[in-house]
Amino acid sequence: MDDYEGGLVVCFMCGISAIVHKMASSEGLAPVGRELVAMLDSLAHRGIDSSGVTICGEEFPADYIIRLWCEGEQDAEAQMGRVQDIVSEYGGSVVASSVTGGYLRTEIRYGGDVGRLAEAILKLQGMHLHSIGRNSEIIKDVGTAADMDGKHSIDGIMGTHGIGHVRMATESRVDINHSHPFWAYPFPDVSVVHNGQLTNYHKLTRKYEDEGYTFQTENDSELIAVYLADKMYKGMKLDDALHSAVDDLDGTFTFIASTEDGVGYAKDRWSAKPMVATETDDVVAIASEEIALRRIFPDEIDRAEPQEGDVKTWLI
């Protein structure tokens, strides 16, 4: 539960954004990291508790990119060694690794079940799994987008598409793990940024736990990611999963989901949370407010404000 509606008229809690470069996979990667940071920076008035991005479309000589956070920064190097041991134990191999403060990032070759590997890594004490992706990674931290960029050099990361979030927490705690985006554990490359509150969070969470899912946080936005990933795993396309979410999720929400090959948004039936979107032949930009779109398009733009129950997807 991320934000509080300050009144009938306008809320300024949490900001979301997305960028899609429709031609990037064929014509070359785009500065998705820089664009997301710029958009989030313009939305700092919507929240400075934490910031995060999912950046997709990077090309690596590996099967998966794993992003982790280690509670004890001093243990990070040792924990990285343990993660590498687990990858080897499960039949994989490490291509590259890096440690930044308490953050661990590793690229691996691995042909096995991602859920089993994730479960094994999570048994390491103090380790938190932020993402496993074939072509995407989640980077998130406490503080502003500028703080996050300064620490994680997001500005230089290229990609095809991505989503971002700035958070103003009012109900669940402020820490790195409760920052957005939320990965749909254990489905690679599915993540969500969300502005709103789900009122049937506990009911749906229990349902999914009964089905064997394990939630990593107590944040309702994680449920959206798991919900969508579950639907897609069972054969739904992203667009259908988003429509289904509008029917099944209660509360006020505007969220953007990112997958290996696209982005989609959904808006609740009360049209309670803001979002605007603009699209050219090459680029789609979505954000809580137009002020963020103007960081990508400095000149006047035509932008649409999605209405109650609206869903839209872009696949690249």
Binding site: P274, D302, E305
Partner: peptide, 22 residues
């Protein structure tokens, strides 16, 4: 964006394109 012309008492507001909510 949202709430253009909120609580207008007197005067006039003209917008040539689209308005947000509220």
């Amino acid at each position: 964006g949202w709430a253009l012309g909120e609580n207008l008492m007197k005067g006039k507001v003209v917008l040539t394109r689209n308005a947000g909510a509220s």
